[in-house]
Design a protein around this nucleic acid. Structure first.
Lengths: 221, 221
DNA sequence: TTATTTTATTTGGTAGACCAAATTTTATTG
DNA sequence: CAATAAAATTTGGTCTACCAAATAAAATAA
């Protein structure tokens, strides 16, 4: 039967979207292979199929770019992923850093109707538990103008919006410090020496590395 | 990646369970092939794999039978399927006859933790929207010999066991009348005209519609 | 610009889950 | 029991999504 014909394709599209929006440098076959942890030959093969389906175009410099059609498809997968994450956290009481893997599975369930109903059931959330925006049913995203905590001036109090990294180590770290979307952080000091920060989170003083601060996205409180 | 290696296997197990519990006649390769709408050669191949994994045994007459291990695995898939059906109907407002295909997809999501949380979120339902029992986390089905209140004779006192419906409206209704599992109901009268019932619940006399009485499952007190 | 490195592509293979058609085995039945 | 029907099994394929290793092409560096 191969009920999950679309599974791989969806992963490629999602990764292309992710790479395309994060990195400035072009996404070539090597980059995509590494990101997906797949053999370049495998990726080349699939990219050709995506090209056939008009989901990507191969630029003159061989970089792989999503077409509007491909981008929309990617955004609708991301929509499903993020809505399921909200469900898992809000309704099934998972910790917000535990849900990624599960949402990876749920995002491939196909039913536009179900996704719309899920959205309504959850009360049309705008952001997932990590603070990432949830595209609407047409694949449109509300763009927030958050900035990395690392580029805020000392003395400022900010509100955590989302995170630029999603690996478990980072999410566990945030969990320990009780840093999550919505929480207020007062940036008390920036240390010239190593660019680490002293901040106050819920009345407790904490040290953050520059690396961490670059991946915590905030807005003026 | 082949994230869904288990997908086919699960379908075979589920179908074997279904055929085994429904039909009295033996389940042979031909029967299974027809039920799954697959070529006998394909089915034979998979059945051998299931045998390798000790999930089935092939009897002397070539009939395919689930082992305890296989049966448990099948029941846990059925558990997931039915819990998701409850979710789709109760929470996402699908009609009971629209949910089967979706649940077929959702049942293959793997996470015991999620299933248990889902069960708790749904309020530990005993039956799915079709009235089929939901196995517990060990694959055990409560084989209660409960009958609908509607089919009890007048004058009898019975104990409420479970409900064949779990939608909010029905549950609210039950809540108002203080009808819950364990409670005693005395059936004082059955009205020929509309098949409604007069019952006594905690010393108070109440009228129940036939519809409600069909969905209240009871045992002799 | 030639050598070297990196990237893209081709070639030949694998495993899982499927199929049609041929063949063998088992049952049924005249 | 022999003929026939049915069921089981074998054989030789397909398609998808993978891989490793070889080769070609492009980019970079000396």
């Amino acid at each position: 039967m191969s009920h999950f014909e679309h599974y791989s394709e969806e992963n490629y599209l999602k990764m292309l979207y992710k790479l395309g929006s994060k990195d400035v440098k072009k996404v070539n076959n090597t980059a995509l292979s590494k990101a997906l942890e797949l053999n370049p030959a495998t990726v080349l093969e699939m990219v050709r199929k995506l090209k056939e389906k008009k989901l990507v175009v191969i630029a003159a410099d061989k970089s792989i770019q999503l077409t509007d059609k491909g981008k929309k498809k990617a955004l609708l997968i991301i929509r499903k992923h993020r809505l399921w994450e909200v469900f898992l956290v809000e309704k099934l009481q998972f910790k917000w850093n535990e849900v990624h893997m599960l949402a990876e599975q749920l995002e491939h369930i196909e039913s536009d109707d179900m996704v719309d109903r899920l959205e309504a059931f959850l009360g049309h959330p705008d952001f997932d538990p990590h603070g990432d925006p949830i595209p609407d049913k047409n694949g449109k995203i509300k763009i927030n103008q958050s900035t990395p905590l690392a580029s805020c001036p000392a003395g400022k109090t900010v509100k955590v919006i989302s995170f630029a990294e999603t690996n478990d180590a980072f999410l566990d770290y945030l969990e320990k410090l009780n840093i999550k979307p919505g929480i207020k952080i007062k940036l008390t000091d920036i240390h010239e020496y190593d660019h680490s920060l002293s901040v106050i989170i819920q009345k407790k003083s904490v040290q953050l590395s520059e690396k961490a601060a670059r991946n915590i996205l905030v807005e003026p409180a």
